[in-house]
């Protein structure tokens, strides 16, 4: 098992190049949370050439919809949702410049090829550990689609947010590598 490595978010091309499936990463900086309905809306807006409510270029998107923040808390539980549901929107998001995605679970082969082409990386974090992950989120602000409730787009500032590289741009896939068939 590799040592944890700290990197800043957003990530640059050199960092993307250096990430290898199985790497354990602590992210510090800004990431954006968006899940199913927000992706659908963003991609529809992009299709109509409308100005997006935030610029995803260069950013990391976290597939997540939190539980409501209890009084005095920054955010509620905030673990990843299942990634494959965002696959139909991923090519558009990559064209808009997204450099990283965080979720849990497998991606289609076509998506992995697109990630290599657009030089973007896919991370997983700990599914079902929403309380644990909430403690690594230091700021949360709605930046788009408040009408979607738990599916609104959030701008998050995270510190030492733990993620594992699943798909790197060199063709590596941690999930495939571990399974014995």
């Amino acid at each position: 098992m590799r040592d944890w490595r700290t990197i800043a978010s957003p990530i640059d091309d050199e960092t993307v190049e250096s990430l290898i499936s199985g790497d354990r990463i602590l992210l510090t900086g800004v990431i954006y949370a968006a899940r199913d309905r927000a992706h659908k809306r963003l991609c529809e807006m992009a299709g109509r050439n409308e100005k997006l409510p935030f610029d995803p270029a260069g950013q990391i998107i976290y597939y997540m919809g939190p539980s409501p923040a209890p009084a005095g808390k920054i955010i509620g539980s905030a673990g990843p949702t299942t990634t494959y549901r965002m696959d139909p929107f991923t090519e558009t998001m990559l064209k808009l410049g997204v450099r990283g995605m965080i979720g849990k679970g497998t991606r289609g082969r076509d998506i992995r090829e697109l990630m290599a082409w657009y030089r973007a990386v896919y991370f997983a974090t700990f599914g079902g550990a929403g309380a644990y992950l909430a403690a690594r989120i230091k700021e949360s602000e709605i930046v788009a689609f408040p009408d979607l409730g738990p599916e609104a787009v959030l701008r998050l500032r995270v510190e030492d947010f733990p993620v594992i590289v699943i798909n790197d741009i060199h063709g590596g896939d941690l999930y495939e590598d571990v399974v014995r068939r």
Binding site: P70, K73, G79, T81, A134
Partner: peptide
């Protein structure tokens, strides 16, 4: 953490 901080075990 869920128990101590009053956060649900999972956001789902």
């Amino acid at each position: 953490i869920a128990e101590a901080d009053g956060l649900p075990l999972c956001q789902d």
